[in-house]
Simulated scan of single mutants.
Amino acid sequence: MKAGTLWLSCGVLRPELEELLRTSRIDGTLLCLDSMLHMEPTKLEQALTTTLERLSKRAATVVLVYGDCAAHLLDIVKRFKVVRIPFINCAQLLVGRERYRQLMREGAFLVLPEWAPKWEQIIKNELGLDRGVAHDLMSEHRGVLVYLDTGIVEVPLELLREFSAYTGLTWRVEPISLDLMLESLLAAQSEPLQAHPAKERA
């Protein structure tokens, strides 16, 4: 007998998913992979493949909470017959498509709560951008830093000030609820049942 839903997610959404599980708005088991895997998509694909080889047969439903984070992600979805959220990234999952489009038109660089403490590691160490290069790149491609406050962890004001100073971008906090994310997760969770109604009735 297979267990229920396995939520296999990027660690960037760990706080939000843990809150939804804690408050019983979703059910199942949560497994998060290190969000830093996004910096090396090939390693992300390898980690997802290894994890699914080990766990996919144990769960009735596996939902990948990942956007378009790697080139062969759809191949992995097809190979293991799992469900994936239909969003390009985790920020779009949180704010919804329309608000995401508005933010992109504004040139927003979106900062998620789990990611904020890692900004220095990513910008300086992983991407190798010193202050001058970061200023030039950000001013050319982005207009503002927007921290998506999901209300679960305290807003890291000092970190945001430091990130703003390093990149030369102004910043603001945008409070969001988890309602849109929850709606999308529940829709993904029910997708296998909709695809196989006879199996559900049995």
Rank of each mutant, 00 (worst) to 15 (best):
R14K: 15
G11V: 10
D130I: 08
M138E: 02
E106P: 01
Y100M: 09
A116Y: 07
A47S: 13
I123H: 09
P15A: 03
T49P: 03
V144W: 00
P86E: 03
R79C: 07
V146L: 12
I26P: 06
M138K: 04
L13T: 07
A91K: 08
A70T: 04
W115Q: 11
Q102D: 12
L20S: 03
E40M: 11
V82L: 10
G132M: 15
P41L: 05
E114L: 13
R25S: 11
V133N: 13
P117M: 01
E114H: 15
G143Y: 02
F87L: 08
L112D: 00
R25D: 09
S24F: 06
A70G: 05
Y66P: 09
N89C: 12
Q121G: 10
R22T: 07
V82D: 03
L33H: 06
Q121P: 04
F109K: 07
E106R: 10
G96R: 02
P86G: 11
E98D: 14
L48Y: 03
I88V: 15
A59V: 07
L145Q: 02
M36R: 14
I85Y: 04
P15L: 02
R105Q: 15
W7V: 03
L33Y: 01
L137G: 06
L6C: 08
T50Q: 13
T42F: 13
H72G: 05
F109Q: 07
W119Y: 10
L17I: 08
V63G: 04
C10I: 08
G96F: 02
T23V: 06
D27N: 13
L33F: 04
A116H: 10
V144K: 06
L73M: 07
R84S: 05
M36A: 12
F87Y: 13
D68T: 06
N125E: 12
L94R: 01
I85C: 13
F80S: 01
N89G: 11
E53Y: 04
L31V: 11
L112Q: 08
L21I: 06
R101E: 14
A108V: 01
A91H: 10
Y66G: 05
N89H: 13
M104E: 14
Y100I: 05
L30R: 00
S56M: 05
